[in-house]
Design a protein around this nucleic acid. Structure first.
Length: 304
DNA sequence: GTCCAGGTCGCCT
DNA sequence: AGGCGACATGGA
């Protein structure tokens, strides 16, 4: 991986196992807008980013310097991890994933902000991804602050929320349950408030959670109203770096039934099986499977 | 109009 | 313990 700064933009070459579109669209994050072929606006880490993937090996980070790339985006996109190795390990554990990983070869698990991930996945329950994105964008526009680098770019064609940072816990507490409801969060509004309180008063301490075990993390997260097993697993995986977490949602349930079981199974069975099959690689396997199954509509009942 | 969405809660056996 | 409807909102 080598970087060149030119005209204020950063050109990164020699990357591998990375596809920007797959990584953003695979359902792990919600605060972005597609503006072209493998070209996106996104908001993360208090910053706005315009990013383009030119080919399998090179990326353009617009209006970005080397230091910001090294300190922020390299970690955010998980670019320092060897996904070739991860895929070969998973392939050894279970060869049924080979075609899945060959199709979704460019997914990387983003290292996202814990608080934003927690609130986003509380919102995600019983909602489709486009609507989750809309709510995240609206909350950011209404209660967040302008993201660093967003002001110069503002573009009427996309939801303005992508130029703003996701609000912090205090801002959402100020907005209150009614303010949060204005962004169409519905019955999730009190859940969001509870999460903000527990985050703000230190009951949920990101540093402690990151140091804690997967089991400890799950138990702490599930103290929040509106966080059950599935959402807690998503937060653990995407917001706290617990790469063994294996969220079981309707899709993964269908996909695992289709690929491995051959009949209906309950969620407990699915997650036990995933732990046996994938162990510490559960999170990666889950995300390859999730996006593949969703794109292929595996096991989904036909509806016209 | 009906059904479902990256679920969870509360109440019912 | 496990089953089942309610929950807001929008799109198919």
């Amino acid at each position: 991986m080598n970087c060149v700064e030119k005209d204020g933009n950063l050109y990164v070459n020699g990357i591998s196992d990375f596809h920007l579109g797959q990584t953003l669209e695979c359902g792990q994050c919600f605060h972005f807008e597609k503006i072209g072929e493998n070209e996106y606006y996104l908001s993360a880490k208090g910053r706005f980013l315009h990013i383009l993937q030119q080919n399998d090996f090179s990326l353009v980070f617009y209006n970005t310097d080397m230091e910001t790339f090294d300190n922020v985006w390299k970690d955010y996109f998980d670019l320092e991890r060897d996904y070739g190795l991860i895929k070969s390990k998973i392939n050894k554990l279970d060869s049924k994933l080979r075609p899945v990983m060959e199709t979704m070869w460019g997914i990387r698990i983003l290292n996202q902000d814990f608080f934003e991930t927690m609130i986003s996945f509380i919102i995600s329950q019983n909602k489709q991804i486009p609507h989750i994105k809309k709510i995240v964008a609206d909350l950011s526009y209404k209660y967040g602050i302008m993201a660093e680098g967003g002001e110069e770019v503002i573009d009427e064609k996309v939801n303005k929320g992508v130029f703003y940072s996701f609000p912090d816990a205090w801002a959402l507490l100020q907005a209150g349950e009614d303010g949060i409801r204005e962004c169409k969060t519905g019955f999730r509004a009190p859940y969001i408030i509870d999460a903000c309180r527990k985050y703000h008063n230190g009951e949920l301490d990101e540093k402690k959670l990151r140091l804690g075990s997967y089991e400890q993390v799950m138990e702490s997260l599930k103290q929040v109203r509106g966080i059950g097993d599935k959402v807690a697993n998503c937060i653990a995986l995407f917001g706290l770096g617990k790469r063994n977490a294996f969220p079981v949602d309707v899709w993964i349930k269908r996909i695992m039934e289709y690929i491995y079981i051959g009949h209906e199974a309950d969620k407990k069975e699915i997650s036990d099986m995933a732990e046996r099959l994938f162990g510490e690689y559960g999170g990666y396997a889950q995300q390859y499977l999730f996006y593949y199954g969703k794109e292929m509509k595996l096991g989904k009942p036909q509806r016209t």
